[in-house]
Design a protein around this nucleic acid. Structure first.
Lengths: 181, 181
DNA sequence: CGAAATCATTTTAAGCCTGAAATAATTTTG
DNA sequence: CAAAATTATTTCAGGCTTAAAATGATTTCG
């Protein structure tokens, strides 16, 4: 089984990145990123349930409202959290029932519903947010400050690459709490 | 309201990492990672739906089975995908109905159900997997080979940190396809 | 003005996902 | 050997999520 003389010189012992049409490195990177996200997410879910008897979607939604003094519309929240409008409607329904969120039509435009945290909701969220920040720090404790910075920077490039590839068709930003810009 | 003279000298103009009890950097890192994961995931979901009329959970499950020549049990798949057993049962039900997966009790231990791809399932998966790899490459096209490697390494450290913090209570690895080790 | 287009939200139908309880099979051990 | 413990899976109730259709309100523009 001879290698034809016209074959590229790197049929064996070649770096993956040099194989044309091969994208195994990107795939492995994505799988590893997904593993990390999934591990973090499910750990946070578990702790929110055990310690506060609540869920991540509720926490995320409250986090968005907490950052806004004037309240947010359903559409704004849905863009921020990168979920559908219908989903926001559904999650808000639960928070309304628990008295954590208030919903009322806007004065100027009665199509839009303005969502705000109630006083109770604000209290509840702040207690959770403090613990949440600690949990995240704990999970990343194995990384030094320099590594955290480097990772943050590389993920910034990744985010730019994604927006480039997706073509800005979708917008909206993160979930869970706060922005990352 | 005077600052006591014993106060640390860095009450203002201090790096976040120097503020004791402050973990905003870790939080921002997590939010950025989550943004990236969510963007990739929902783009892949959309394309799987539009191009193959299927869903990510089904694709993920088939990806696991495709890697195993001898088949996998429900429990193995659930560990790999980091989802509950009940979830695997439910997703498998759909794949069974579509003739993509086969399920039969193991000969030696009749508690376990062995899952395998059917010939049709294997064909369908391979077509999807090829496209999938291309999509991922496209999404990461803004990163060079060195950056991909660096990111992969840092996420490896992150993964180790997570396992450390979570205490190996849970195990299991990634989702979507293949391993990242 | 008023019809048409646009926009924000809700509803609907279907599927995913979880933790906990139930079921069924195997292994351990007194 | 048989009761008890363990293990694998399924069932269940409840909540999340989506895309698409429906509803209701506002804006555009003929």
């Amino acid at each position: 089984m001879e290698i034809p003389s016209s074959a590229p010189l790197l049929d064996r012992e070649t770096k993956a990145s040099e194989r044309p049409g091969d994208h195994k490195d990107e795939l492995r990177l994505w799988l590893r990123m997904l593993t990390c996200s999934t591990l973090i997410e499910s750990e946070i879910r578990t702790r929110l349930r055990e310690e506060f008897k609540t869920t991540l979607p509720r926490f995320d939604l409250m986090a968005q409202l907490e950052k806004s003094t004037t309240g947010m519309t359903v559409g704004e929240v849905s863009q921020r959290l990168m979920v559908s409008n219908g989903n926001v409607t559904a999650v808000v329904a639960g928070l309304l029932a628990d008295g954590l969120v208030d919903k009322r039509p806007a004065a100027q435009d009665r199509r839009v519903q303005v969502l705000t945290l109630t006083a109770q909701g604000r209290r509840a969220f702040r207690a959770m947010a403090e613990r949440h920040e600690g949990w995240i720090a704990e999970l990343f404790a194995g990384l030094g400050a320099a590594e955290i910075g480097q990772l943050f920077r590389l993920l910034g490039q990744t985010k730019a690459s994604l927006h480039q590839a997706i073509g800005k068709r979708q917008n909206g930003t993160p979930a869970t709490a706060g922005d990352d810009e």
